[in-house]
Simulated assay, not measured.
Amino acid sequence: MESLDPSLFPWLLVFIAVAAMLYSSVGHGGASGYLAAMALFGVSASLMKPAALAMNIVVAGLVFTRLWRAGFFNARLFWPFALGSIPLAFLGGAIQLHERAYQYLVAVALLVAAWRLLLASHEPPTREAPHPGVALPVGAGLGFVSGLTGVGGGIFLSPLLLFLRWANMRTTAAVSAAFILINSIAGLAGLITTGANLPRGLPWMMLAAVGGALVGSELAVRRLAPVRLRQLLGVVLVIAAVKMAITA
């Protein structure tokens, strides 16, 4: 791969597989983990975003499929957020703000969310899905933030669904995976129209991500108790916050 020592490429694949396993176990695609791994191994910045989005698509697609088949997906909850998110994700991706300050703010927000999740000792009862008049603008806001930060948006949607008790842990994972999938597809399509190049090693990277996601999605579907999944999501948010802070 361009700008990467070939002898290090297998280790990059290991990092990708581990990130995919951890993130997919809570319904996330893992973009921030893949970006951190590629940055660590010196992959060219111009190749990092399209590679991360491509891996996001295959991982989130796999996780969503497994959780949907297991009966955890709530379409009524998902679609208002998704319809609000997609156009604003395009808009957010086209705007350049003061990136360093914004990354620090997002890192703090994620740490607060992680603190709340890690302290939780049980899964709270859920409420009915929000009215579309609430979900559409919330989805639009999340889509805008997702476009600004370059991630699929699940890392912001998951804590919101749990905090407001709109879904339990596994339904949150399923809805977040679908949310990440559609936003990542839209983001990658937009990048391709600008002439962005894909790395030559991308098929191997996607294969490593799928391998990790097969394990992680098994954890999401049946192996971990809901409380453990909540705690694992808290760990994921801490990892993402640290990554944003140190790269700001």
Score class of each variant (00 low, 15 high):
L83N: 05
L91H: 01
W79L: 14
N74I: 02
V108L: 15
Q103E: 08
F78K: 04
I95V: 14
R76T: 13
V134F: 05
L117W: 01
P132G: 08
G133L: 15
V145K: 08
L136G: 07
R76N: 09
A89N: 07
G133D: 09
Y102W: 15
F78D: 01
A60N: 01
P137A: 10
L97Q: 11
A75M: 11
E99L: 07
N74L: 08
L88P: 01
A113D: 06
S85V: 03
T126F: 04
P132Y: 09
Y104E: 08
H122M: 04
N56K: 03
R100H: 14
A82H: 04
I95N: 08
L110F: 04
M55W: 02
A75H: 13
E99R: 13
L77Q: 07
M55F: 03
G93P: 00
A109E: 05
L97E: 03
G141N: 02
F144H: 08
F64E: 11
A140K: 10
A101C: 09
L83D: 04
R127F: 11
Y104N: 08
E123M: 09
F64C: 09
A60P: 00
G84S: 07
V134W: 08
M55Q: 12
V106N: 06
L117S: 06
G147Y: 01
G71E: 10
G147I: 08
V106M: 13
L136P: 01
R76A: 09
V112K: 04
P132L: 10
L119H: 14
A135P: 04
G139R: 05
V108N: 05
L111N: 03
A120M: 15
S85F: 00
W68Y: 15
W68V: 13
L118T: 08
R69C: 01
